[in-house]
Nucleic acid binder design. Structure first.
Length: 486
RNA sequence: GGCGCAUUCGUCUAGCGGCCAAGGACACCGCCCUCUCAAGGCGGAGAUCACGGGUUCGAAUCCCGUAUGCGCUACCA
């Protein structure tokens, strides 16, 4: 038996999906799944001028990456399709016709030039901006006269001149607007396409959407939508206006802030689970301490009552921490495979030939605690995949030592490592560590030189574990060539 | 300008009249652990709960006002 809870995510394909949009998708999805309802994707492509090629696919790809599955959408269809507004034009025209017939709407012949002048004049005279309703009460004869030599008229909605409209928002409670403060907005543009207001209302109704969860920037338009529902004789859905995601400067997060494009987080090596967890916690919380939650836990606990009212700044530091937490929870096998898949999608220049899975499997435990995103991995493990390693000779010389003492230390280490029976981490460490006292240097100094000689790095995965994976031959070879440099 | 929404540590937040001289997390600082770097453990610093009035025996929590921030004010969404 189908549940009557139906949510929808309705983005317009005007560019790269950004974290603000996607967070709205996350909340809608969470709410739908929590209630066992359905989740639909509807593309609001009613502005031909602003449409960006590939934007719809990027939107779907973003949701797929995050694992937010949908039951109906432009790619899979569904009982209320099509899910592209540009393919549902008839429905909007029918609605506009009905509104025209019942006297709730009228044709507007004003040119964009006149409208621009009107706005300019209103600004100059410090009058309230808005359409002056010139075409509102035209007679049929006047309309015919006006229509001569002009392009197709737009259709405007007759906003009531008095009274007020109140919405009972699930997050903000009752919010009231004076009708007379709103102008007669366009519902059907002269190019035959609907504006957001009309299309949104008509589609949410025909698609039987039960809850509309969208960003707070839409709260100001709610009286228009409610009036539209009423004039159309439709029962409005429930509304919940989500607080916005803000940039560091507290302004609305947008492309110009950078770091807003969702898919960039994928290429930067973030994990979808971490991203969903982080996004879910932006203006929503379970309690005073739970932060790490799996997708299932989020679905189980999500409730609109616990959505906050104030906007939240998108904090990348915290996202990084979440990602680290998720990385650390992964078992070796998963981490190795995820890393391999990531490298396949975004080949790291340091590693031209991707390693064998089994080989990577041994390396992964050494770096798991040392990376915050998958992009941190390559620089740390490159030496495992190279025949020769690269570094400045001076790097071999540790603080408090000189070339000569470094050379002596490495020679002794070479001796020990050459003779050692088993080349595992425990054995090599047991063999090398005593050398420090013998040479009268600190273990850190000794290990530091060996580290640079064998990995080329000053900051690297644990030394002896790395040597074990490198194997005796390569390890000794590296030390020998370091000796030749000194 | 008008309308609307919001306001607890730098940031994300807990708090829905007494349990709060405000709890958790990120970031920051210190200590421990330690072969580097991390991770981890422990501890510290950090919020006169925007401000001012009320209501109440009692307010971060309720009401009013002010300030500030943000959003909307397109034939864009």
């Amino acid at each position: 038996m189908a549940n009557s809870v139906r949510l929808r995510f309705a983005p317009s394909p005007t560019g790269d999906p950004h974290v603000g949009n996607i967070r709205t998708a996350v909340f809608n999805w969470l709410f739908a799944r929590h209630h066992g309802g359905s989740f639909a994707i509807r593309i609001e492509d009613t502005d031909q001028a602003r449409e960006v090629a590939g934007a719809t696919e990027a939107l779907l790809e973003s949701l797929r990456w995050l694992g937010l599955d949908w039951d109906e959408g432009p790619d899979i269809g569904g009982p209320f399709g099509p899910y592209l507004q540009s393919q549902r034009l008839d429905g909007y025209r029918d609605a506009a016709s009905r509104l025209l017939e019942t006297g709730s709407a009228y044709y507007c012949y004003c040119s964009s030039k006149r409208l621009a002048e009107l706005r300019e004049k209103q600004a100059r005279l410090k009058m309230d901006p808005g359409y002056d309703r010139q075409c509102r009460d035209m007679t049929a004869a006047e309309q015919i006269e006006w229509a001569k030599g002009r392009a197709t008229p737009a259709v405007r909605f007759k906003m009531p001149m008095d009274g007020s409209t109140t919405v009972d928002d699930l997050i903000r409670g009752r919010v009231t607007f004076e009708n007379r403060l709103l102008d007669d907005f366009v519902i059907l543009k002269s190019d035959g396409f609907p504006t957001y207001h009309l299309a949104n209302v008509v589609d949410d109704h025909t698609m039987k959407i039960s809850h509309v969860m969208r960003a707070e920037e839409w709260l100001s338009s709610i009286p228009r939508h409610l009036q539209l529902y009423e004039a159309l004789g439709m029962e409005p859905p429930r509304f919940a206006h989500l607080p916005m995601i803000l940039a560091e400067d507290k302004s609305k997060l947008s492309k110009r802030h950078g770091a807003a494009a969702l898919l960039e987080y994928r290429s930067s090596g973030f994990l979808p689970d971490a991203m969903v967890n982080f996004l879910a916690l932006l203006s929503w919380s379970l309690d005073d301490k739970t932060e790490i939650m799996s997708r299932e836990e989020l679905v189980r606990h999500f409730s609109i009552e616990r959505v906050a009212k104030a906007g939240a700044i998108f904090n990348q530091e915290k996202l990084l921490w979440f990602n680290g937490q998720y990385l650390r929870k992964m078992v070796d096998k998963d981490l190795a495979e995820t890393l391999l898949a990531y490298w396949r999608a975004y080949p790291p220049p340091e590693i031209p030939d991707l390693p064998e899975r089994d080989y990577l499997l041994r390396i992964v435990p050494l770096i798991r605690d040392r990376i915050k995103t998958m992009s941190d991995a390559a620089p740390l493990v490159t030496f495992f995949f190279r025949d020769t390693i690269d570094y400045e000779t001076e790097e071999l010389v540790q603080k408090g030592m000189d070339r000569q003492s470094t050379k002596v230390a490495l020679e002794r280490a070479l001796d020990v490592l050459t003779q050692i029976e088993s080349f595992d981490a425990a054995a090599t460490e047991a063999g090398v560590r005593p050398l420090a006292a013998e040479l009268n240097i600190k273990a850190g100094q000794l290990f530091g030189s060996i580290r640079v000689a064998t990995t080329g790095l000053r900051v690297a995965p644990p030394l002896f574990e790395s040597l074990e994976i490198l194997g005796r031959e390569r390890s000794l070879g590296s030390i020998k060539s370091a000796l030749e440099r000194l």
